[in-house]
């Protein structure tokens, strides 16, 4: 059994999804190899080689890999595929973009978004927005898999002693050109790994009113999330969206404010440890899954919450 995982990074930092993917791979073998493609990635290649479970880091450092273009990454993986029984990446927009290409080129089915590894060929994955769990067995000789990062613990960043090996690949040009990226910058914790998430929905009514959400998030050192309706209405940008077609989060505390609780939203947050719902409609479905429900007008409740938090002499952040 040998597993290759595709690292996600921005050339200077390794994304936490990479750690979750290594962690998932370690459930299949203790011989995990990591492929990292990028530009000026000497430091992070070295860093990954120290991670627990990692036996080898294959690095391809080239300007052409500065941006993650699926058409460029896929042939590199395919060229290495012979040596591995499993190839894994994270089920986020990075992994989802690349891995189906790898699967089809190897003529195997891809197993998407797995949450449990039962054995080397049997996995559990949510379907129908998490309303059902499918236990699936792959009959392909090679398994191409994306894993749901929040379902696998992040392992230690040290304790490994992998070797770093640089590889070559003659990239033929493709018809895709990267133009630019508009990334939301914030000092808050990253949404997909934050310990506390405060999310706002259509009930917030405007982008300005989202200040009420960010005020609470600041006090709790929380990430901010949103429903699709809030994103569609332009209150916040798309990277805040939680749900079936957004991000999956599993924080210790999820506070849903002015969110009705559509199944597509629940798909992204219902595994949270503690769920709080603030909604003025006491019939709102979000209350069916909330540990603590408060039926109130958010425009009164949020300022009160802010001052109640101020009164606490300590907040665990």
């Amino acid at each position: 059994m040998s597993v290759l995982i595709l690292a996600e990074h921005n050339n200077s930092e390794v994304k936490s999804s990479t750690l979750s993917t290594i962690s998932a791979a370690s459930k299949i073998t203790n011989d995990v190899e990591v492929l990292i493609l990028g530009f000026n990635i000497e430091n992070i290649s070295k860093e990954i080689s120290n991670y627990q479970y990692v036996s080898k880091v294959l690095t391809l450092d080239n300007e052409k890999f500065e941006h993650a273009i699926a058409e460029n990454i896929e042939p590199v993986i395919v060229s290495l595929a012979d040596k591995y029984t499993h190839i894994l990446a994270a089920a986020n927009t990075f992994g989802k973009n690349v891995m189906p290409r790898v699967a089809v080129k190897l003529d195997v089915a891809q197993i998407s978004d797995i949450v449990t590894i039962e054995s080397e060929d049997t996995f559990v994955r949510p379907i129908y927005a998490g309303n059902a769990l499918a236990t699936v067995k792959s009959n392909d000789s090679k398994k191409v898999i994306t894993i749901r990062p929040t379902s696998f613990d992040i392992m230690a960043k040290e304790g490994g002693s992998g070797i770093v090996e640089s590889i070559n690949f003659d990239l033929t040009e493709h018809n895709v050109e990267f133009i630019d990226r508009e990334e939301s910058k914030s000092d808050r914790p990253e949404l997909s790994t934050a310990r506390i998430v405060v999310s706002g929905g259509r009930g917030l009514q405007s982008a300005e009113n989202f200040k009420l959400i960010s005020d609470i998030a600041d006090k709790l050192n929380a990430a901010i999330g949103a429903s699709r309706a809030a994103v569609d209405a332009g209150y916040v940008s798309n990277d805040y969206q939680v749900g079936q077609t957004g991000k999956v989060v599993v924080p210790d505390l999820y506070i849903a404010v002015g969110i009705s609780g559509a199944i597509q939203h629940l798909a992204g947050m219902k595994e949270s440890k503690i769920i709080v719902a603030i909604n003025k409609d006491e019939e709102a479905p979000i209350f069916n899954i909330a540990d603590y429900g408060l039926s109130a007008d958010l425009f009164e409740a949020l300022p009160q919450l802010s001052s109640e938090l101020d009164k606490l002499n300590s907040i665990e952040k």
Binding site: V108, I111, A134, V136, I289, G293, L294, S295, A301, Q304
Partner: peptide, 24 residues
């Protein structure tokens, strides 16, 4: 098909929690 469905099951359901009276 290359993937066999072994079983389809219901996810664990969440217990409905409590309603609180106010923010405090």
């Amino acid at each position: 098909p290359r993937i066999e469905n072994i079983k389809i099951s219901e996810p664990a359901s969440r217990q409905k929690g409590v309603m609180v009276a106010d923010v405090a």
